[in-house]
Design a binder for these strands. Structure first.
Lengths: 124, 124
DNA sequence: TCCTATAAGTAACTTTAAGTAACTAACAAT
DNA sequence: ATTGTTAGTTACTTAAAGTTACTTATAGGA
């Protein structure tokens, strides 16, 4: 049975609160990177250009709390921590992957649209 | 030919700059609402709970600049402004629609995951 | 022995973005 | 004369994001 009692457009709905938390770039980059295999903290830090340790740590914690990823610490020296996607996270990750890479396939069109807009609205 | 020269993980890539601008809740709500038919400013304001006039106006302007929506003003009194999705915007809108409504279909699982996480990590 | 490096973070501080509230124009209806 | 409508803008505040330095425990090299 689908949850027709949830409405993402209603600001107090749990689904809306959830959506507010997933609709940011760092969350989506992490979900996309974890789609195929587990990845370690510093590896994510290196691969997702521009993310800080603070934002990575914070976002991972939120994703773990929401049951979208798991955190596994290995007692090596120094400690190794691996993040992996859950089955629930996987259902979201596939969609996020399409969205994240949409910009790569439509970059030229958007750049052209921006140039056209800026030319039309110059010094107004 | 796909644009393999674009890489969304590289912070200076145009596709990344584009992704940064679309990866926020207001952008996605607007794209989703315009998916089926053109909608007016105040109608969007009423339907997207929690958005302010400022953020709606600002986000619409960015979407128009990127060629994802069009703005049409009708000389009625008071003036009526209609926003409509473009063919380019439509390709994005379909994916955004899946993402936005994902939370409605998985709300219960996430809520359960949060409760489990909070119970395990209480007063630490 | 001392210095440097590593992994996975945390804490304090600053900057930027988002949210809030009040205000605008031009006219129509009460 | 006051209120209501649409589609915004402006000034101000608060919350989130970004930046930099620091932490713990240990291994490796000079």
């Amino acid at each position: 049975m689908p949850d027709y009692n949830y409405n993402v457009y209603a600001s107090a709905c749990p689904s809306r609160i959830m959506f507010d938390s997933i609709s940011n770039k760092w969350t989506m980059f992490i979900l996309d990177r974890l789609r195929d295999q587990p990845v370690r903290f510093n590896q994510l830090l290196r691969e997702i250009e521009g993310i800080s340790q603070k934002m990575l740590s914070q976002t991972l914690k939120t994703l773990e709390r929401d049951g979208l990823i798991t955190r596994t610490a290995f007692p090596t020296v120094p400690v190794t921590v691996e993040y992996a996607i859950t089955p629930l996270g996987q259902t979201l990750s596939s969609t996020v992957h399409v969205l994240i890479h949409w910009a790569e396939h439509n970059g030229d069109e958007i750049l052209a649209a921006r140039a056209a807009y800026d030319a039309k609205n110059k010094q107004v």
